[in-house]
């Protein structure tokens, strides 16, 4: 039960904080200048990709991205730990089913394009992974209890693939003497694509599996369910 005076006081305090925030941000924006833009843009050519945002994500601040993929994995594992999935949707009507049969391959194709485009234009692993996940969600909405996902063993492997490849690349580069996540000259582009591909697969699978909710069932039961 919320006291009435609290309901009055909260907006007042928030407005005060807001005023301070706007003022502080105005000051900051006026004095901020170029920030990291110049340094980052200057280094983009060395990063192996021509899209500055992808350079930041997968090269300059690749460690952030690694942890972010780990966060996604954590969420999935957390969801799995909460128990079995909700029952599947009803099978789609023929019209919807037909559309799904069209949309899903298109989504998968666009996934590939997004992934490739990320090197030089807006796009990249997360956008691509989101599309892949959308394909899974579409399947699930059409009544596929497993959202097109493979059985438990492969599902588990796919969901960790992003973190695995990312970390392994980092550690192997370190072992070779370059330093953790330090791409050697000339290999950056291919390594980034390698990591992004793995990450895309993981993100797509994770999103679809998270949509289903619940632990993966082992292969036989899941096949009989579909």
């Amino acid at each position: 039960m919320t006291p009435a005076w609290a309901k009055v006081l909260i907006p007042i305090v928030l407005i005060a904080i807001g005023a301070v925030l706007v003022w502080a941000f105005s000051l900051a924006a006026l004095e901020g200048g170029d920030r990291l833009a110049l340094i980052a843009l200057e280094r983009v050519p060395e990063s192996g990709v021509s899209n500055p945002i992808t350079s930041v994500l997968l090269n300059f601040r690749a460690y952030d991205t690694l942890l972010e993929v780990a966060v996604l994995l954590t969420a999935l594992l957390g969801i799995w730990s909460l128990g079995p999935a909700a029952p599947a949707f009803q099978p789609a009507s023929p019209i919807l089913g037909g559309m799904i049969a069209w949309v899903v391959p298109l989504l998968i194709l666009s996934t590939g394009y997004m992934l490739w485009a990320g090197g030089h234009a807006p796009g990249g692993a997360f956008q691509a992974g989101a599309l892949l996940g959308a394909a899974g969600v579409t399947l699930a909405l059409g009544g596929d209890a497993s959202a097109g996902l493979p059985g438990e063993t492969r599902l588990r492997f796919l969901s960790v693939l992003g973190v695995l490849v990312f970390t392994a690349v980092g550690v192997i580069l370190m072992a070779l003497g370059y330093g953790f996540l330090t791409y050697p000259e000339g290999y950056a582009k291919w390594l980034i694509i390698f990591i992004e591909t793995a990450a895309t697969l993981s993100i797509g699978v994770t999103l679809a599996a998270a949509y289903l909710g619940g632990e993966p069932r082992d292969e036989r039961t899941s096949r009989s369910a579909t």
Binding site: T2, P3, A6, K7, I10, V13
Partner: peptide, 10 residues
Amino acid sequence: DWATAGLLWL
């Protein structure tokens, strides 16, 4: 209570 706690926090 969320509102009380929230107000205190603010």
